[in-house]
């Protein structure tokens, strides 16, 4: 028995017919698609974030929903509109972890090396994982928002406001994905990457999570003022509860861009460190 089934089989596609390389955007699309395929084949990696986010929403709204009757700054507002952004942010940050996990999975299986041996752009390998993460987190934040709407949320700015909120969530998640990807590239180790996503906790809880920031004091107030998520929450809450406020939305956007600049620089440096090939 031999592996050879047909000696001429290799001549089906001659190299002469082949373009020299795949255009960069196509590389990115191909890599994104591949990552999505594997993510959907391991739903266990995605579903927990979704459940946790929906859980936050239900529990916080049920237990703290009465707060808007007496907490200064919230009186007369919907507590659901105040707490939904927390769930959206947690879904965005959790979904962003998918990007780092996708990369670390490839490093651990050795497939990342296989891809490095092709003419594929190193940037496309990373962008593919980031975009797949972005698509997952967009789905997750949308689902959480739908749950909020089903619970009776009536956003002040209507559908356009919801879309702006989801857009902010997408950008925030992508910025955080830069961080998880950087940690994946740097460590090449699933446990370390998983550990890095725990940054999720200070980002989500050292901020105006449950009460407006002016009710916080001491170190937690300082932490909240530094935390970019605070400004993103402000923007989302304004959209849901008080109406259009260009200045607040813009401040949220700037906070995200600063965060993204840091994480992307970190990711690029980590990519270079990994592919500099020691």
């Amino acid at each position: 028995m031999s592996v050879i089934s047909n000696p001429t089989v290799l001549s089906g596609v001659r190299r002469a017919e082949v373009v020299r390389s795949m255009p960069f955007p196509l590389q990115v699309i191909t890599m994104t698609w591949r990552n999505l395929v594997t993510i959907f084949r391991t739903p266990a990696a995605v579903i927990p974030t979704l459940i946790i986010s929906a859980f936050f929403l239900l529990v916080y709204n049920s237990s703290l929903g009465g707060a808007s009757n007496f907490v200064p700054g919230l009186i007369g507002q919907s507590y659901l509109g105040f707490i939904l952004p927390v769930s959206v942010v947690s879904a965005a940050l959790g979904g962003a972890g998918v990007a780092g996990q996708a990369i670390v999975r490839d490093i651990e299986s050795g497939y990342f090396n296989k891809l490095l041996l092709t003419p594929a752009s190193r940037g496309a390998l990373v962008l593919g994982a980031m975009l797949a993460g972005a698509i997952i987190l967009a789905l997750q934040t949308s689902l959480v928002t739908v749950v909020g709407l089903l619970m009776g949320l009536q956003p002040k700015t209507g559908l356009p406001g919801i879309l702006v909120m989801l857009g902010l969530a997408l950008l925030l998640g992508t910025a955080f994905a830069g961080f998880t990807v950087a940690m994946a590239l740097r460590s090449g180790n699933a446990a370390a990457t998983q550990g890095a996503t725990f940054l999720f906790f200070p980002l989500t809880f050292l901020t105006s999570t449950f009460v407006p920031i002016n009710l916080l004091s001491g170190w937690i107030r300082t932490a909240a003022e530094i935390n970019p998520v605070t400004y993103v929450l402000d923007a989302m809450r304004a959209l849901l509860n008080t109406g259009w406020d260009a200045q607040i939305v813009l401040r949220g956007l700037v906070a995200i861009l600063i965060m993204a600049m840091l994480t992307f620089t970190f990711a690029m440096a980590s990519l270079r460190a990994r592919t500099r090939r020691r």
Binding site: V13, E17, V18, V19, R20, S21, M22, L26, Q27, T30, R34, K114, L115, T118, P119, A120
Partner: peptide, 12 residues
């Protein structure tokens, strides 16, 4: 995917 990364069209 491998063949595409080396420049082949999807069909090829």
């Amino acid at each position: 995917i491998q063949a595409q990364l080396f420049g082949m069209s999807r069909k090829q």
